[in-house]
Design a protein around this nucleic acid. Structure first.
Lengths: 265, 265
DNA sequence: GCCGCTCATTGATCTGGATTAATAAATGCG
DNA sequence: CGCATTTATTAATCCAGATCAATGAGCGGC
């Protein structure tokens, strides 16, 4: 058995020979926002993951139409979940940040209807769905944690629907930027009023259902209004409350998983 | 303790005095599409639900900005999850069908950012998040089941994003109708080529980010092309393969939860 | 069977944002 | 450092779909 692989049989213990250290993993930071993770929790989690996997920029991680049956979590770097249409248009569902899962929603269906591509160099931690399910039978809180993550993903999509369906392009863009900022803050990758935005305007346009020229104009408009600046792929907010109002933005605050107090945890 | 209520303490058994029969519940039908439910599973589930609750048409079930901490599942009837914007526009996220959960994604956050309203008379089965979490510690497969349901919700949203962002109005409408048909088929509420569609054109327009007049025209177009008919709120498909091609529709097939074989189940 | 309401349909006008095309700037790379 | 490729910006045209405004049609209630 090579380093990082695992055995899993009949719902009992499955242990990698070597644990993969996860303690400073953005996934752990994220999970900690809605549940208490004990040392034992962490240890269990570390044993179902394979060794950290480096991925080259531009690599296809999930291909539309293919099967994918893993939960991969981004340790470092950025990726895109998107769909390419027959007419050549592209709709981006989500920009995947450190701590985000590769396998939504593909791993839960027979085959994918979306693709995922690495936008930058990536470090990934991967475990199979089988291993994760096994873990859930040992430590049920992880089944719930997965639900929480899936719901958060749904909530992000929901905002995008509202953005694209009924908000003006300015509102859309601001909302999008505020959301990215908030998500990066969660995993400690943003400043209070700014963050690195390693994505082109084309990506933003394809996220928001706009054309690139129009997105560019909206961007300029925001700069002219002195609401944001963006140089060298760094976005700075000059007046967050004003932006939040403009975009009807409401921060999403996770409720805690109401874990039982008993020795079960 | 009144009928249907439950006790729940310290992560141990929580039992309603009387089980609420769920065996023909559309939720159970849905769950069965991706996991094997044993008699014991069903029994456990029946004990955390309150008695079936009738709801009047037009009743607000979840209000934007308020807290909601239950998992309610529709037994019968239809509901809408939507967001009302300051400018008076409305974006509908999802039409809730029998078997669908009321509490996505609201129950997992401090407070709701969406509203849910009963579109018709409704029958609901409700349990608290706390009770459900308790159940998951007894029977971890339900934590996973919840993940599967949440992911499905996300997948529906994802399709809506692609619809609104990059598909033409005709494609959008056809996609939307095919999806509803498929979801209703799953819970046994549609015919092979037709289904009751108890929603107004305004609802469809607000789901697809279109204006009502335009939606109406698109509808007429499809009728003129003899692709669908809709009289008296019944939609009939005349050529499903052609419609699927037209809309780039790909059915979503759940992967099974890889439950362990052992006595744990 | 009449009333009132909701919902579907139609038409006329107007505009936001797409499309297309070209150029400039930036970035990475050999 | 200069070249190549990607990315940002600008401008001109055009049309899909919004908006606004009526009119019909269906339906439940009494």
């Amino acid at each position: 058995m090579r380093l990082g692989s695992r055995s899993y049989s009949e719902g009992h213990l499955y242990r990698a020979r070597f644990a993969v250290p996860l303690d400073d993993h953005p996934l752990i930071v994220k999970l900690s926002t809605f549940m208490k993770l004990t040392a034992r929790d962490l240890e269990s989690l570390e044993h179902i993951f394979e060794a950290e996997k480096p991925v080259k920029k531009g690599k296809d991680l999930v291909v539309d139409g293919k099967e994918y049956r893993n939960l991969g979590f981004v340790k470092d770097g950025y990726a895109l979940r998107y769909k390419l249409l027959r007419n050549g248009k592209r709709q981006i569902l989500n920009v995947l940040l450190p701590g985000d899962a590769i396998g939504f929603p593909v791993s839960f269906f027979e085959r994918s209807t979306y693709s995922v591509v690495a936008l930058t160099e990536l470090k990934l931690n991967i475990c199979s769905i089988d291993a994760y399910v096994g873990l859930c039978f040992e430590r049920p809180q992880f089944g719930l944690a997965l639900s929480w993550l899936a719901v958060k993903e749904a909530a992000i999509y929901a905002e995008r629907i509202v953005d694209i369906g009924r908000r003006t392009p300015v509102e859309r863009l601001v909302h999008f930027l505020l959301e990215l900022h908030s998500r990066l803050l969660t995993v400690g990758l943003a400043e209070k009023n700014s963050f690195r935005l390693p994505i082109s305007q084309e990506v933003i346009a394809d996220s928001l259902g706009l054309s690139v020229p129009h997105l560019n104009r909206v961007m300029q408009h925001l700069r002219k209004e002195s609401l944001i600046s963006n140089n060298a792929r760094v976005v700075e907010f000059f007046d967050i409350p004003a932006l939040q109002t403009l975009a009807h933005y409401e921060p999403l605050v996770f409720a805690q998983i109401p874990l039982p107090m008993s020795g079960r945890a």
